[in-house]
Simulated assay, not measured.
Amino acid sequence: MSLDTISITFILVNLAYLMTFTALSIKEVLWLRVVLACSHSMIFINNYYYAQNYNVAVWNFIFILVNIIQVVRIYDDRKPRMIPQDMEDLYRGIFSAFTSKEFLYFMNLGEKEIINKQKLISLGDHQKDLLLVLNGDALVMREGKHLAKLNRGQFLGEISFLTDQPASADVYAKDELQYIKWDQSKIRAIKISNNAFWAKLNSVLTNDLTAKITS
């Protein structure tokens, strides 16, 4: 191995270790993956072209591919999507912690419905759905006593969803009421498949409940 080769190897190896060390201090996952991909690239170049240690080179090539795939996936998740105009206030408001992709995914899981002056939730019933008011007013009643009026951007049945307890009040549509509903079992399945998304949704529901209690 020539002196020039030794110098190049020294530079590549130490540069790779420096990048790996730097990656340990990066909290942003996207940039962490980018730096790791660069680090493994240095090790790959050194072992393939200079040290000719092909076993190490192959493994680092695999690590490069894994990190590049993750970079593409993370970028795709964060890439802005077009939000329908009639949903933009919800996205900018209660769902502001969601990416546009997460918001559209969650909305597409639900079903929109319209009722008129009908009971929506009965006291003591076990709720199968989580609901969000889109248009109109929902009246919350218990034993004939008016407790609250809920409108656009407020959830119905979130207490039952969070506590797995029966409904604590009756809910009626004051007039025409449009809402979107999600099957609770489908939402709970997200907790297993996408814990980060579940944490954001749980925060949204908790904030909604807190706002109702303190208002």
Rank of each mutant, 00 (worst) to 15 (best):
L18T: 15
W31Q: 11
N116Y: 01
V171M: 05
W198I: 05
W198C: 12
F44S: 09
N108Y: 03
D208M: 03
S2F: 09
F95E: 09
G144P: 06
E113D: 10
G153E: 01
L156R: 02
F95A: 02
L36K: 08
K200I: 05
S41Q: 00
A196F: 01
S25T: 10
F21D: 08
D76P: 04
F103Y: 10
N202R: 03
S39R: 01
T206N: 07
E88M: 09
N108Q: 13
S7Q: 06
T99G: 13
L147N: 04
L162T: 04
G110W: 02
I190W: 01
N135K: 15
A211V: 06
S193P: 01
L132E: 05
S215Y: 00
L139G: 03
I213T: 11
F98G: 13
Y50W: 14
I190K: 02
N108W: 00
M42T: 09
M42R: 00
L109V: 05
F21V: 13
T20R: 03
K112A: 09
Q70Y: 03
E111T: 13
G110A: 10
K27L: 04
A148M: 04
L134K: 09
K128L: 06
V66N: 11
L3M: 09
D86Q: 03
P80Y: 06
R142H: 10
N14S: 08
H40E: 08
M107W: 11
Q118H: 05
E102W: 10
M141S: 04
I26F: 05
W182G: 14
L162E: 02
M1S: 14
D175Q: 11
M82W: 00
